[in-house]
Design a binder for these strands. Structure first.
Lengths: 217, 217
DNA sequence: TTCGATACCGAACGAACGTTCGGCCTGTCA
DNA sequence: TGACAGGCCGAACGTTCGTTCGGTATCGAA
């Protein structure tokens, strides 16, 4: 009898990678199990040895694609906090944290473009349990960036409100994530240079105070 | 005999709006003609009175959703150029152009969220002719922003290379377009305030010079 | 040498898909 | 009053979908 992959044996990486490639260009619903069987060089039924159903495959792509990125971000925040009995000035440290986070994000993006594209299509096609799990990973990740942006601003000008920090964090994510639609190594150079440009643009830009008349809350 | 809508009679707006709403949350392939018939309160076959096939419906959503936005941007650029026998200083004028473009973009985004989401899913499911048409609209639109960003920078610091301007334009689009994933009127206030924040962040950020060591080209 | 688990397959299932067809109303205009 | 076109159906077409089932080849442990 087949064991229908209750997360028992790990799903082979080549299946996940090739599925991500297909889904990133055609979408989840636009990619059929027969497409996947053909490109992975397996039979249709053979695929079901590695995951219970198509939806779980989507979950695995999301989970395995995103976890290393989150782990790295959590490590960076941990280093920032442990070096923070504050003999070191908070200013340079918060700049370094933000810079490292951006570099980590874009570096991973550049080498996992397909998985990141799938990730951005959203959790909507997933079962509530799987969708919830992925959404939690994303929230934890967002929270780290939110923290870093808050620390950066706090060390340099009058404190921003929580929702202002949140908005600015989303602007930063916008600059970083939008590259999925236009970036190519040949035309735009290595991601490291791009990361630096985004870091510079964001940090120079986010410190501006809004005119008092337009202040929110 | 039915005339299968060779762009003859215009497709009713309610069909386009409700189709965009459905497709924006489930994707093109994830939305069936039966879904559309149910939500528009029509029969399955009755839908085909207004467009030749599902793919043309996608094209119509894209075309009708994007055209007003492009027209507005072209008008703004026209006004900028006509006011440019340069008695007026180029600096303030280029700032106003950029500010207006951002305001136009976000204003339209805010009131056509579903159509814009569909637009961002890409032209891939469309036939080559339709896809090509939409891609051209997008290119003309991008080119206008590219022009505005170039003018803005040129009036304020040493000239940037074409690819640097292009990259910065994409960063701006990233900040603006990414809002589709997080923005809600209740939590984040009116789009006008957001437009101003993006304008400020971008203009303050984009003038920074990259350290010579990292200069490209 | 037998055993059981692992990795895989061909063939088929029922359901859902996009699309088509013939016909039915309800106006308008001659 | 009759002809006709536009807007819309119900029912069905052939195809493709995700998934299942019974079976086979391989291989390390007993």
């Amino acid at each position: 009898m087949d064991t229908p992959a209750l997360a028992s044996q790990p799903c082979p990486d080549d299946i996940l990678a090739q599925s991500a490639a297909l889904m990133s260009s055609q979408g989840y619903h636009g990619t059929s199990m027969r497409d996947l069987a053909r490109t992975t060089g397996r039979s249709l039924s053979g695929l079901y040895h590695h995951f219970a159903n198509k939806e779980e495959l989507l979950y695995l792509i999301n989970e395995r694609g995103f976890s290393p990125l989150l782990a790295n971000a959590e490590r960076l925040r941990g280093e920032y906090r442990s070096g923070n009995g504050r003999p070191v000035a908070a200013g340079p440290a918060s700049a370094a944290l933000l810079c490292d986070l951006i570099g980590s994000h874009l570096g991973y993006f550049g080498s996992h473009l397909n998985e990141m594209r799938v990730l951005m299509f959203g959790t909507q096609p997933m079962s509530s349990a799987h969708g919830q799990a992925i959404r939690q990973l994303k929230e934890r990740y967002t929270e780290i960036f939110n923290f870093a942006v808050g620390q950066y601003i706090e060390a340099r000008r009058e404190a921003a409100t929580a929702t202002e920090i949140e908005r600015k964090t989303y602007l930063l994510f916008g600059m970083m994530n939008w590259i999925f639609g236009w970036y190519s190594l040949d035309e735009h150079g290595p991601v490291e240079a791009l990361a630096e440009e985004i870091y510079t643009t964001f940090t120079k830009g986010c410190l501006a105070l809004r005119p008092a008349a337009a202040r929110d809350e």
